[in-house]
Nucleic acid binder design. Sequence first.
DNA 1: TAAATTTGTTAGGTTAGTCTAACTTTAGTA
DNA 2: TACTAAAGTTAGACTAACCTAACAAATTTA
Lengths: 220, 220
Amino acid sequence: MLSYTEENYLKALLMLGLQNEDKPEVGTNDMAAYLGVKPATATDMLKKLKEKDLVTYQKYGKILLTAIGRKKGIAVLRKHRLWETFLYEKLDFSWDEVHEVAEQLEHIQSEKLVNKLEEFLDFPEFDPHGDPIPKANGEIPIVHRILLSEMKENETCRVVAVKDTSALFLQYLERLNVTIGTKITVLEVVDFDGSLNVQIGNAPVRSVSVKFAESLFVKK
Amino acid sequence: MLSYTEENYLKALLMLGLQNEDKPEVGTNDMAAYLGVKPATATDMLKKLKEKDLVTYQKYGKILLTAIGRKKGIAVLRKHRLWETFLYEKLDFSWDEVHEVAEQLEHIQSEKLVNKLEEFLDFPEFDPHGDPIPKANGEIPIVHRILLSEMKENETCRVVAVKDTSALFLQYLERLNVTIGTKITVLEVVDFDGSLNVQIGNAPVRSVSVKFAESLFVKK
DNA sequence: TAAATTTGTTAGGTTAGTCTAACTTTAGTA
DNA sequence: TACTAAAGTTAGACTAACCTAACAAATTTA
């Protein structure tokens, strides 16, 4: 059985690994930063995880999850996203409130609970932020998606997920009436600063920053 | 903010205190036994809780929750019972499965979560075992109830709660088709061993042991 | 390629929560 | 009331997860 903390390290490694899909290797500092601990602490834990065959790594090298480690990490991520969905759909939590509570709920140990929860939610495919929910068998549905910033002029897309899940960004999206599924048309890409003139739904045309465009996942 | 462990100690003190309603004082050993730790460990924690003004006690004396300690304990109990209700009602858990998972869920920190959960469950008054769910303000509905063993011959009652919540007992009840609300008529009290001849619902008359009768709460 | 910077590790220390073994106090009983 | 048993405490030790400060390796850059 893994401790609360060990689970967090595995999830962190999984998440960081998923971010650069080509190479899922992760560095000590990144991991420490992600978890809000000091690098020295991360090193300690790494040794422990290696001992338990959950990661492979050697001194001064990169970290990689083993098959078992990955599976455990995915299980935590699955719970996290299912709970987020529950909070959003059933308990009326807002977009930006779900994460914090799900961080706690993801560590509840009960196979039955997570599977029943999934059933109760009617086997959702995506969490409230548009991220895919891993299946019970550990499969993570692959979602074909690009950043809004990668769109060309005069292309239209739909929002499928948020990359930045900070409350600040999510609240901003809410103000702009952007949710998962919202239609966005890119009318102009401004060379000067990379900002985009876009039409969001039926609202008047407006400009959004590069930072904004790099924080939203869309699908053509 | 209280730790997971501190919360458990407060809940234990509350529960043990509620058991002898006249005197809610608790001893170190009882508390330790309840929590599955050694008395020495309990003593250590007690000092800490006293330091934080959550309990009053002095060396070799009895332990009593302060108003604050009681309030915190009740908050944990409230969460526990609401989660049990959720698992039972929404996720199809059985009587004897809810406790273990609720032991974990009761420590999730989020005011909003517990209140929304309560609303989602439509403000239940009792948990699946028939125990009252504390209100958000800390009030615990007082339930007028007696043990089945206290009934006289030819009296009829309804089951309102179980005293013993062990899986063994709950599964036995299930086999006898006893749930909250089941009608029981005491036909005879056998002097020899205190066993009762009872009619449970419409089933044929049968005998139940003292131990059984002392494990069920009923209401005339 | 050598120096400087970044990245990662080691050593030693802290805190919370647990334990065992030995001891002290209180309560029950002869 | 004195003794014994039960209840409770203390001292000292352990583990997990964290820290800081000092050091070592790897990478970047001049």
